[in-house]
């Protein structure tokens, strides 16, 4: 039942020969070695697995990879690397936004989707954009500050 197909992740094409029903999250973590997207519930309830699909923040834990031929997937690794951090990652570091950090990949991705469509978000906009992401450590206040800070930085970079 498997048929080779191509998946674009972080701008690179990958040719995959696996069942089309495999969850995208498993493909990213186990087949492509991109460990940044995280398994939290597998139920589309926590947001730890969020990735960008054509720019929208979406759950990857139950998304069948076969539905994604020709679509562009971006993971947290596609935002930036330790050597070249994305302004969001830099702002999270500056605000020390995160305790255990397990939620952060999904939250960074949701925040990226927000800032791409709304460069000038209010606090309420950020809250709305992150409400599908759970953080059990209570890093929320810092995360909100960090996203607003990154938005300001990005606006300056554009200006």
């Amino acid at each position: 039942m498997s048929q080779p197909f191509t998946l674009t992740v972080n701008g690179r094409d990958h040719s995959l020969d696996i069942p089309a029903t495999t969850p995208l999250l498993d493909v990213l973590r186990n087949h492509l070695g991109l460990k940044g997207s995280r398994y939290g519930c597998g139920l589309e309830q926590c947001g730890a697995c969020m990735v960008l699909i054509d720019g929208n923040a979406e759950y990857s834990c139950s998304r069948e990879v076969g539905t994604l031929a020709g679509r562009c997937v971006t993971t947290v690794e596609g935002l930036g690397s330790p050597e070249a951090l994305h302004p969001l990652q830099r702002a999270f570091l500056e605000e020390q936004a995160g305790q255990c950090g397990y939620c952060l990949s999904g939250i960074l991705v949701s925040a990226k989707a927000l800032l791409d469509r709304n460069p000038n978000p209010t606090r309420a906009d950020v809250i709305a954009a992150l409400d599908a992401n759970l953080c059990r450590c209570g890093s929320h206040p810092r995360i909100l500050r960090a996203v607003l800070k990154a938005a300001a930085t990005l606006r300056q970079e554009v200006a």
């Binding site: 460990k35 940044g36 997207s37 690794e77 690397s81 330790p82 020390q96 995160g98 950090g101 952060l104």
Partner: peptide, 20 residues
């Protein structure tokens, strides 16, 4: 002094957990 967390950079860029 507020030395930044040593483990946070990895966790913001997609690594740092036993799960990985």
């Amino acid at each position: 002094t507020s030395v930044p967390r040593l483990d946070l950079p990895a966790k913001l860029t997609g690594s740092g957990f036993i799960h990985d």
